Simulated scan of single mutants.
Amino acid sequence: MDLSEARREYTMGGLRRNDLPDHPESLFEHWLKQAIDAEINDPTAMTIATVDADGQPFQRIVLLKHFDKNGFVFYTNLGSRKAQQLQNNARISLHFPWHMLERQVHVTGIAERVPTHEVLRYFSSRPKESQLAAWASQQSERLSARKLLEAKFVELKMKFENHEVPLPTFWGGFRVNVSSMEFWQGGEHRLHDRFLYTRSDATWDISRLAP
């Protein structure tokens, strides 16, 4: 398979310094709304990268569930590989790949646990099947056969058929406190526009990066 000629031009527009607000969350909100309005697949999907004790990076896709000036929030099993890695090294990277709009957003920061009351509020808002799945799956643990997972799900479904599903003690969330945010807009002839916001106390430094 020859991939050397797999390329295309990026022609949907540029990004200029005068277009940028003082705070990156304002631009992120604008871009996210445009991604949602464009009806692209999974606009809130983000790749999150963590590292293990040996410095080996790991990536996986999760869904963004909330963001504001205080950071980006996602939820997970606290026994999962990503949660265990964040316990040992709270540095994290997020990446939003909005290919259809020829855009990317890259975030770096420090992850901290979300308070239990926030976790409970979100868990209670999930469909019951998703709540049961959280109980059924020992995320990242080795599983000898899918039928064991399915059997556990059915068992729990019967157990809680007429009851509310309680919040598992092993399920929680993380808020990423942002250190930097980079906005990438594709440009013709590979002359892409890249702007990096870097936190400086209560303000943000903005730099243009070469593509």
Rank of each mutant, 00 (worst) to 15 (best):
R91C: 08
L94W: 02
L20W: 09
N41Y: 09
K157A: 14
S179A: 09
T108F: 10
H192S: 00
L196I: 11
D205I: 15
T44D: 03
K128Q: 04
K147Q: 14
V176L: 01
V165C: 04
K128N: 01
T198D: 11
E155S: 15
E164W: 11
L120A: 12
F195S: 04
W31V: 07
A35E: 01
R103E: 04
L167M: 03
H163S: 15
D37S: 08
A151T: 09
E141I: 14
R113D: 10
P97S: 01
L143Y: 07
N77W: 00
V178R: 00
H192L: 03
V178W: 01
D54W: 02
S93R: 11
R194H: 05
D22N: 14
N41G: 07
W171M: 01
Q56H: 11
E118P: 05
F160K: 06
S180T: 11
S4H: 15
H189I: 03
Q56R: 10
E118N: 02
Q85N: 12
I40C: 00
L64I: 00
S207I: 15
S180Y: 08
A134K: 02
Q138M: 12
R113N: 10
E102W: 00
F160Q: 08
V165N: 10
D193N: 09
V105P: 04
D37I: 05
K82E: 14
H95Q: 13
L149S: 14
I61M: 12
K82W: 13
H106Q: 12
E25K: 13
D54S: 07
Y197E: 12
R126S: 07
G14C: 07
V62N: 10
F174G: 02
E5L: 12
L94N: 04
G55H: 03
R142E: 10
E188Y: 12
E161Y: 10
L148G: 12
H117V: 11
N77F: 04
P43L: 03
R142P: 13
G173W: 13
N89C: 07
Q85D: 12
Q59S: 11
R113T: 13
R60L: 12
H189E: 07
K82F: 10
L32V: 01
V73C: 08
L20C: 08
A133K: 05
Q84V: 13
L64Q: 00
R194M: 03
Y75G: 13
G13Y: 04
H189G: 01
F123R: 04
A83S: 14
S130E: 01
K159V: 11
R81C: 14
M100N: 06
K65P: 06
L78S: 10
N89I: 06
D37H: 03
H66N: 09
F72I: 00
E5Q: 15
F72R: 02
Q56L: 05
Q185M: 00
V176G: 00
A145G: 09
